[in-house]
């Protein structure tokens, strides 16, 4: 007989309306995919917060390490040429 558990952990992402981003809502426990979706529905969309749900097993999520934030994220900070405001447009030009 298997040992008693509180079942597996899943992270839940909710889309509030069609076309919107899926936003992390929290976590539920469930033993299988279908239960994960049903539990996510009852836990995170009791007030009509969602039109679509993703549930992902927690151990399938890989997270960046905050200790490596310097090397991971800082190099993007000086690449301002990726921003539209970096460029000087001739005066009078429209719709650009």
């Amino acid at each position: 007989m298997s040992a008693d558990t509180q079942l597996e952990k899943w992270e839940v992402f909710i889309q509030s309306k069609p076309g919107a981003n899926f936003v992390h809502a929290g976590c539920v426990h469930a033993s299988d995919k279908k239960m994960a979706l049903q539990n996510a529905r009852d836990t995170y969309t009791r007030r009509g917060e969602g039109t679509s749900i993703w549930a992902v097993p927690c151990d399938a999520i890989v997270a960046s390490n905050p200790d490596e934030n310097d090397m991971f994220f800082d190099p993007a900070n000086d690449k301002t040429y990726r921003m539209p405001t970096f460029y000087v447009m001739p005066e009078g030009a429209k719709a650009i």
Binding site: D4, Q6, D32, M35
Partner: peptide, 15 residues
Amino acid sequence: GAWVREAAEAYRAKK
């Protein structure tokens, strides 16, 4: 509730 949780895990493992 233990037997229900165990059954859910066992079912998942079987599948």
